[in-house]
């Protein structure tokens, strides 16, 4: 099945699954059972809200069929956007009912006089509110990613279970066989996804462990972990892709991080793979430097759609900021091994010369392949006669070849840099279809 067909199928299936409860609800009603427009609209908002909540996990459970089309980062972004959409529907559900005379006290889960049906509804409502607030304000609240990730999963499970129990106990539509079968089926699919994500996938990773061969200190305080497969054939990936690196005691550990592969996709017989990590968070600052050769780690991947293998062109323009060089380094190394003679212009922005990760490697590659290297330093050292400041349209125009508009552009780096560079590329009339980036700074 082609990517476009799979994309349309996935989009259609998603919308259908969200609307299906309304179809079943409408079909199972007998004439004269309606409760008025606003009450029924509120009920519909509740059903749609619950269906979105149930489908949220599917978006981030790394299902290759879908992740391979849109990219896991796009699915995570979509998960976030649908998180806001579900908030609107779930908020509308009680609000419309309150306007029709339902007492506001129903939202208090601690009121003893309420039946459990309302209490579950209130827990689901406040649980979702807490979930959205923690995700939206994680950085402002200074919550670590690891802590947030665990609590996000727990609160989501509690909110969804409470909302489902609320629907079951309300009766009315949900007392009918069609609705009961439908929600049971959704619950079963969700359960299967959780089992696959939390049990089967880690078990598969456990059968394919990796050993840390080297933990190399790079420029800019970055670290490169070189891994060797233990009794398996390693990982086949496209240059530019990433994998979830799990450094816990077992692959069941929550502590896993999406890291770009920095080594060549054509590693040959030794099957080694490398990940380069900059100390930007608790895990990368405290855990990564302490990983010793001989340690066992686990990988889930490969994922990602940022790759010259996917978007072929007569030439490539790569734009990196800081540690964003890692997937682009993998691309350059791979293309060099493949004797690819297409032109590559690599713009690499860093704070200063000492922060340029892989600079010796890149300079070596420049001699081996059709690679033009342009360093752009924010704070250049004394005597620096190269580019400095920010990557602007003017700088790009000066360095790009004449036919750059047909080239494929890959951007990787901090969000601010990627946003700015995309705008500069638009000033140069580079079509959006030629600009590729991957974003993980979503929460």
């Amino acid at each position: 099945m082609s990517g476009l067909v799979r994309g349309i199928f996935s989009f259609g299936a998603y919308v259908f699954l969200l609307l299906f409860p309304l179809i079943i609800g409408a079909l199972s009603r007998h004439p004269g059972q309606g409760r008025g427009f606003w009450v029924e609209f509120a009920v519909a908002c509740g059903y749609v809200g619950l269906a979105i909540m149930a489908a949220q996990f599917a978006l981030v459970s790394r299902v290759q069929f879908v992740a391979g089309i849109f990219g896991q980062d796009a699915l995570q972004h979509f998960h976030k956007q649908m998180g806001y959409a579900v908030t609107v529907f779930v908020l509308a559900h009680p609000m419309l009912l309150f306007l029709r005379g339902l007492p506001w006290g129903m939202l208090n889960p601690f009121t003893l006089e309420h039946h459990w049906v309302w209490r579950f509804g209130a827990i689901g409502f406040w649980g979702l509110g807490l979930l959205v607030c923690l995700a939206a304000f994680r950085k402002r609240l200074k919550l670590s990613y690891e802590w947030w990730h665990v609590t996000h999963a727990i609160i989501a499970a509690v909110a969804l279970s409470s909302a489902l129990l609320h629907v079951y106990l309300v009766g009315y539509d949900s007392s009918r066989a069609g609705m009961r079968v439908l929600w049971s089926l959704y619950l079963l699919i969700l359960f299967a996804l959780v089992v696959r994500y939390r049990i089967l996938r880690p078990l598969e990773m456990w059968r394919k462990p990796w050993e840390v061969v080297e933990n190399i200190t790079e420029h800019g305080n970055a670290r490169t972990l070189v891994l060797h497969p233990i009794d398996h054939h390693g990982l086949r990936f496209a240059p530019g892709q990433f994998a979830w690196l799990n450094t816990g005691k077992t692959p069941f550990h929550f502590d896993q991080h999406p890291i770009s592969i920095s080594s060549s996709a054509e590693s040959g017989a030794n099957c080694q793979i490398a990940f380069t990590i900059k100390p930007l968070g608790d895990w990368s600052r405290e855990v990564v430097p302490e990983i010793k050769p001989g340690a066992r780690v686990w990988l889930d991947g490969p994922y990602g759609v940022l790759s010259p293998d996917r978007d072929q062109g007569p030439g490539y323009v790569m734009i990196a900021g800081g540690v964003g060089i890692t997937p682009l380094h993998s691309m350059c190394e791979t293309l060099a091994i493949r004797d690819d003679c297409r032109p590559i212009i690599l713009f690499y922005a860093a704070h200063d010369y000492d922060e340029l990760i892989f600079r010796e490697d890149l300079e070596k590659l420049q001699k081996q392949m059709n690679l033009k290297l342009v360093y752009v330093l924010e704070k250049p050292n004394l005597g620096w006669d190269g580019e400095h400041g920010r990557i602007t349209a003017e700088l790009l125009r000066r360095r790009l070849p004449r036919h750059y508009k047909r080239f494929q552009f890959f951007i990787c780096g901090p969000t601010l840099l990627m946003d700015a560079v995309e705008q500069e590329l638009h000033k140069l009339d580079v079509g959006s279809e030629f600009i590729h980036s991957e974003r993980f700074d979503l929460v």
Binding site: F41, A74, S437
Partner: peptide
């Protein structure tokens, strides 16, 4: 670019779902 498409896809889906809610309410309101 992909993220912009994704945002618009989410908005489109939200509108479709709201329209679905409206149709449901109209068809069963009694």
């Amino acid at each position: 670019m992909r993220m912009v498409v994704v945002t618009w896809a989410a908005i489109l889906i939200a509108v479709l779902l709201a329209a679905g809610c409206l149709l449901f309410a109209i068809s069963v309101k009694g």
